[in-house]
Amino acid sequence: MTLEKIQRAKHALELRNIDKRFKKGRKDYAYALKSVSLTLNRGEVVGILGPNGSGKSTLIRVISTLTLPDSGEVDVFGIDAVKHPKEVQRYMNRVSVEASFFKKLSSMENLIFGAKLYGVTDRESKPMIREILDGIGFDFTRVNEPMEHLSRGMQQKIALARALLTSPMLMLLDEPTTGLDPRSKKDVQELIRAIRADHESSILLCTHDMGEAEELCDRIGILLNGELIALDTAENLKRQHQVGDRPPTLEEVFMAATGTTLEEAEFENKDEKKAA
């Protein structure tokens, strides 16, 4: 019943007026998300651009049922994810900036465990692991090495492979390339492109890399201090903020929309965090 409902759903994700605040002091609260609304169509890749502390990770946590919103609605394939988290969890997966693995276990052991949490047996997962790892150019001879022996880039590839093993219809990517060297970054970005092409997944990609957002996403949102202040295609965003003959870069769009550069916004957020 749920699978049929999910297959019929028009949108992969619908957020309506999501608010989330966290306690800072005894009576003090900080808003992480302020009335955020967005729709992710099936098969679409939407990027959320924002500096550190803008609310990107909270947004991903709310969608992935790890954080409860104070108000608003989260529908994943038409199902209320706040009221029925178990019904939607098996249709989505997440890759975050930190590689969430048991570091002493091997890639194979971590992948087998991750797959089992989604009801995939060893017999089903082992050939899939081989196929996926071959597909992403992972040296299979290293599959039994502890994760802590692998580079960050390789760990991030394994994280993407783990998500693919569970056949997610909605992928939540929270800064998957942050901190990677240029080569690994490129590899992971290629992998995201391949996931989109081969898996019919809908993808929400949070990043603070403008180039990555522009290259990989159909639409781009700008999140600043918990508010989604823009959401459109890169072309439309540029057109809306064009002054003169030359179309602006995405950096210039960000600056025009927020009144600050991404670096300055990150610096301000760090200062605010320190003061708090």
């Binding site: 098996r90 930190e98 969430s100 693995f101």
Partner: peptide, 14 residues
């Protein structure tokens, strides 16, 4: 401590 808590808690296993 291992950093896997979010992955485990967002999985569909009860």
């Amino acid at each position: 401590w291992e950093g896997t808590i979010e992955y485990t808690f967002m999985s569909p296993a009860s």
